[in-house]
């Protein structure tokens, strides 16, 4: 059975890097020194993924202070006379991590580079994977012109913003395909699972992904977390991406039986310190194969691994890789 394995979001910084970040904040080390540590850890993480034989390799997004930040900075999604690093601190639902809420004040400008390709370009061609927020996630987690005073969504403007974001992401993906020869684009989607509005916006969500993936040659996936996404079946499997991913701890997998789709199943729990044993992962994969029988299967973390300390995250992906090898053998 060919089962793929790879990472799918921000990887944790080491204890040393986190301490250095605090020292930088307190003025005890320079930003350059702090960034050198992040650079070193990024290179080490890329090597680790290659050495473990993961099918696709990311840069771990160690420089990202949250999963929307680089985009908010690049697209200047903030209040007047401010910057994206000063946007309101807001909880990422289901976690004790926070993001700075982007503020969309007018039509988002195009033509700006979002992703720094320095480290992506250091990974092996054919394995290069980048991760972006889904258009819906970015629009939904932002404040601004598409929301009423009480925080509810202005339907028509929200749709416009969503499609506008999709176009910008599409341009960025084409740039990355051309300049960095990326092979895999994953959209992280933490909101659809719990957003009350997701069902009523389904056709727009679909359209936004169609725009974002238009003429993209790389593999595309949408990884959903923060709730049970089986409630969106069967429409979920018809979204215009090659692969659909979800959290095995939050989603009723049985409902995906006989899916004619490549599934990414989140069985490495990024919310717990327990290290999954390779034999357990193998058994999980075989259960899926026997009962769900998807068109293709990848084993992944249930959500970005940034929620566990780095040394634990490394052990988790080592076991994930071992399990993938066992399954191939």
């Amino acid at each position: 059975m060919n089962v793929e394995a790879y990472l799918n979001g921000i990887f944790p910084r080491s204890d040393f890097a986190l301490e250095s970040g605090s020292s930088w904040l307190k003025g005890r080390v320079t930003k350059d020194d702090y960034y050198k540590i992040l650079e070193k850890e990024t290179i080490e993480l890329i090597e680790l993924q290659h050495n473990l034989g993961l099918d696709y390799v990311t840069d771990g997004q160690l420089f990202w202070d949250d999963f929307l930040r680089q985009i908010a900075i690049a697209l200047e999604l903030h209040r007047e006379n401010s910057n994206a690093n000063e946007n309101p601190v807001t909880r990422q639902i289901y976690t004790n991590t926070f993001y700075r809420k982007p503020i969309i004040l007018n039509k988002i400008g195009n033509g700006k580079e979002i992703i720094d390709t320095e480290f992506i370009n250091k990974t092996q061609e054919g394995k290069r994977k980048i991760i972006l927020p889904s258009p819906f996630a970015l629009a939904y987690l932002s404040d601004g012109i598409h929301r009423n005073e009480d925080g509810t969504i202005k339907n028509d403007i929200f749709a416009e913003v969503l499609l506008n974001i999709a176009k910008i992401l599409n341009n960025e993906i084409h740039r990355l395909e051309k300049e960095s020869k990326i092979s895999f684009v994953q959209f992280n989607e933490p909101c659809i699972a719990y957003a009350d509005e997701a069902k009523s916006f389904w056709s727009i969500i679909n359209e936004s992904l169609r725009i974002a993936t238009k003429d993209v040659k790389a593999i595309t996936s949408l990884h959903l977390y923060n709730g049970d996404v089986s409630k969106f079946l069967p429409e979920l499997l018809e979204l215009p991406v090659n692969r659909i991913g979800f959290d095995a701890y939050a989603t009723n997998i049985r409902k995906f039986a006989d899916s004619k789709k490549f599934l990414e199943i989140g069985i490495i729990n990024s919310k717990n310190s327990l290290i999954e044993k390779p034999e357990a992962i193998v058994k999980y994969a075989r259960q899926i194969q026997d009962t769900i029988n998807p068109e293709g299967l990848a084993l992944v973390p249930n959500r970005p691994l940034e929620l566990v300390p780095q040394q634990i995250a490394i052990k988790k992906i080592e076991n994930l890789a071992k399990a993938a090898h066992l399954l191939r053998d």
Partner: peptide, 10 residues
């Protein structure tokens, strides 16, 4: 078990 980030560099 170790350190994790809450936001920014916190």
């Amino acid at each position: 078990k170790g350190l994790v980030r809450s936001f920014d560099v916190m």
